[in-house]
């Protein structure tokens, strides 16, 4: 054994030279140019995880592969269905052990513009987010170490990782990076609203009235949080008065700041017609119920968002609420829902 080690020391420099030469021959992954629809801002992509054709393809394959769960029965797509804006039409998703969660699955739309993930913002990046559902005991209930081992043992994945990242050995880091790459391509920017903004479509009188109410600080006042245009969210954490004493403490569980009790991430409203049920706990089935909540239903507490504290209850008529809903439905992007690149 000693001799082998000594021999290796002398051979090692030669090996490094040889490896350098070899590296030139490994074809680098093909850079992928993301097409950002008009109206959406540029996307910040981490410099250590640039998008590549091979990386995105690998990420898509992993996203749809149940090998990521402990008993190989559930994939990311089990609870994030493209038909529903990559969310789950059930109030709570059920994990591999038959246990339901306590929060509604979040839609996966325009994630590349967001910096914090999960309803409470517990994950600080799209890459880190990937570990959450895989390891959550009531979701896919798997360990990253097992996922790495299972993928390494397959015939096809090592080659796919080599094509995407230059290294055949599967690592948790590259699993996270591949899935994040795929998720950054899930862009919605061709709804009727977008077409209207580009001068390619007309909104009906009701939709236009809804748009005006959406922006009217005395009426819908939706824009404070669901920023008008582009992302339709500020991606901040806010207490929207769902409960006076929150059952789920939300953002507080991450920051332990008392002022964060009952705060949840503002979701984007893109494709909101498809992402029912609504709110972090999926308590509302329809968009009208959501609008009714902001019009009359919200409950007061110390942490209630100031925009709602000052809002007058019952400030919108039934007709106005229906017009608001009509406008929200113009954010539905069937090209996104049917995009063959995503499945």
């Amino acid at each position: 054994m000693k001799k082998i080690i000594v021999a290796f020391i002398f051979i090692a420099p030669l090996l490094f030279v040889a490896c350098d030469k070899g590296e030139d021959e490994i074809p680098a992954a093909t850079p992928y140019t993301l097409v950002i629809p008009e109206g959406l801002p540029p996307m910040n992509i981490p410099s250590n995880n640039p998008l590549t054709v091979e990386g995105i393809a690998l990420g898509k394959r992993l996203f749809y592969d149940p090998i990521l769960s402990a008993n190989n029965t559930q994939s990311c797509a089990s609870c994030h269905l493209q038909d529903f804006g990559f969310t789950d039409p059930n109030q709570f998703s059920t994990g591999i052990d038959g246990i339901a969660g306590t929060r509604n699955a979040m839609p996966l739309i325009n994630l590349g513009w967001q910096t914090k993930f999960f309803w409470d913002g517990g994950a600080n990046g799209l890459e880190s987010q990937v570990m959450g559902p895989i390891t959550n005991p009531i979701e896919m209930h798997e360990t990253m170490a097992n996922v790495v081992a299972k993928l390494n043992a397959t015939a096809e994945y090592p080659d796919l990782f080599k094509a995407a990242f230059g290294i055949a050995e599967v690592s948790s880091q590259n699993i996270m990076r591949a899935i994040a790459q795929f998720e950054r391509t899930l862009i919605s920017g061709n709804s009727k609203y977008d077409q209207y903004m580009r001068g390619e479509a007309l909104l009906t009188a009701q939709e236009l009235n809804g748009k005006a109410l959406f922006e009217d600080m005395e009426k819908g006042d939706c824009v404070h949080c669901h920023s008008m245009g582009s992302t339709f969210s500020d991606f901040e954490f806010r207490n929207t008065g769902l409960d006076s004493i929150p059952v789920d403490e939300g953002r507080y569980m991450i920051t332990l700041n008392a002022s964060d009790k009952g705060k949840f991430k503002t979701p984007s409203l893109r494709n909101v017609e498809l992402t029912a049920p609504f709110m972090h706990d999926g308590r509302f089935q329809t968009l009208l119920e959501c609008v009714q909540h902001y019009n009359t239903g919200f409950r007061y507490s110390a942490n209630l968002d100031p925009n709602l504290s000052f809002a007058v209850k019952g400030r919108m008529t039934q007709q106005e609420m229906e017009d608001l809903v009509a406008f929200m439905k113009t954010l539905t992007d069937m090209e996104f829902v049917n995009n063959p690149e995503f499945h």
Partner: peptide
């Protein structure tokens, strides 16, 4: 990567 690789199970995945 390295010793900070999440596969060592020394990371909270719901609150990174």
């Amino acid at each position: 990567a390295g010793d900070l690789d999440p596969m060592y199970g020394m990371i909270w995945t719901w609150n990174t």
